[in-house]
């Protein structure tokens, strides 16, 4: 069973990951109904607290909460008092005074969600912290892989790009290893450092070194804002050794899945023909995102001991 929070996949067990994925598969059906809403979390308040810009993750969580009938409230660092120097803990204390049930936080610092989870009684869901984890993204990635490949045990997933600074990659590595998949990395030496092998993955260099054996290739977005100066050469050189285009895709296993957490830098890590090609499941990832986030909210919030008076069992 999941605990109070979802901070990452590093400490989750196989049973918990499987439970989330199985539940998410059910929630996909809700989004296909005419009335895409169930009353499950009626009266619960979910706050999205985003200290980094992100349209899609925030929309996805927002929609997930709304489809479960929770009330949602958005808090953006750009429009709030954090610009005036308020600390994260003070912001959280203010939100706490409004009696939320869950906070979905994205923050540029690794460990920021853990700090809130330690200090407050409400549920904390990590929507991306620094270079640490982005568990809901990894879960939707794994759900998408499972849809196409079934059991992921024994499968090989290649992750290509700036793995060192990618919370998406790290959450995927933790989750995929637990489900028994093998993970192999490729990328520039500054972004795909040998110490990553301590996470139980194999570290290679060029994309050609990993494409042949992969059932899935996950292309990461180059995020210059997370790189220290001097950690990357030109985009042209990057694309030459680590980018995925049609010619390279032809050398891969037939049926290989091409994934990307979005937004794509077209022409850098992924050529447009590949991004929109038949091997690409990028749009399925987005659809699954809502289902996974509904499952997380349901599993984390749906069973809390709550109000007196709601003590009748259904028979």
């Amino acid at each position: 069973m999941l605990g109070k929070d979802l901070l990452g996949l590093r400490r989750l067990g196989v049973e918990e990951i499987t439970e989330i994925l199985d539940t998410a598969a059910h929630f996909r059906a809700v989004s296909e109904r005419r009335i895409k809403k169930v009353p499950t979390l009626r009266g619960r308040t979910v706050v999205t607290l985003f200290f980094e810009n992100s349209t899609r993750t925030r929309m996805s969580f927002d929609l997930a909460a709304k489809r479960l009938s929770a009330d949602t409230l958005g808090f953006s660092a750009s429009t709030s008092s954090t610009k005036k120097g308020e600390t994260l803990m003070d912001t959280a204390r203010n939100i706490d005074a409004m009696k939320p049930d869950a906070i979905i936080i994205r923050h540029p610092c690794s460990g920021a969600p853990h700090m809130l989870a330690r200090a407050f009684p409400w549920t904390v869901i990590n929507a991306g912290d620094g270079i640490n984890e982005h568990p809901s993204q990894a879960l939707l990635d794994m759900l998408t892989m499972r849809d196409h490949l079934g059991d992921l045990a024994g499968r090989t997933v290649a992750i290509v790009g700036d793995v060192y600074h990618s919370r998406v990659a790290r959450s995927n590595i933790f989750g995929l290893r637990k489900l028994g998949a093998s993970v192999v990395l490729a990328g520039p030496g500054t972004m795909c450092r040998p110490e990553l092998e301590q996470l139980g993955v194999r570290v290679r260099h060029r994309i050609d070194d990993v494409l042949e054996e992969a059932d899935v290739v996950m292309m990461l977005r180059i995020q210059r804002e997370r790189l220290e100066p001097g950690a990357m050469s030109t985009a042209r050189e990057y694309s030459r050794f680590y980018g995925l285009d049609l010619a390279r895709l032809r050398q891969a296993r037939p049926g290989i899945l091409v994934m990307h957490p979005g937004p794509i830098n077209r022409g850098v890590e992924l050529s447009p023909e590949v991004a929109d090609g038949s091997q690409s499941v990028i749009m399925e990832q987005v659809t699954n995102g809502v289902a996974v986030r509904m499952a997380l909210l349901y599993l984390l919030l749906g069973g809390d001991p709550l109000p007196a008076g709601a003590d009748h069992a259904v028979a």
Partner: peptide, 9 residues
Amino acid sequence: QTSVQLGLR
């Protein structure tokens, strides 16, 4: 090892 596990620079 610990920084890699924790995702701290």
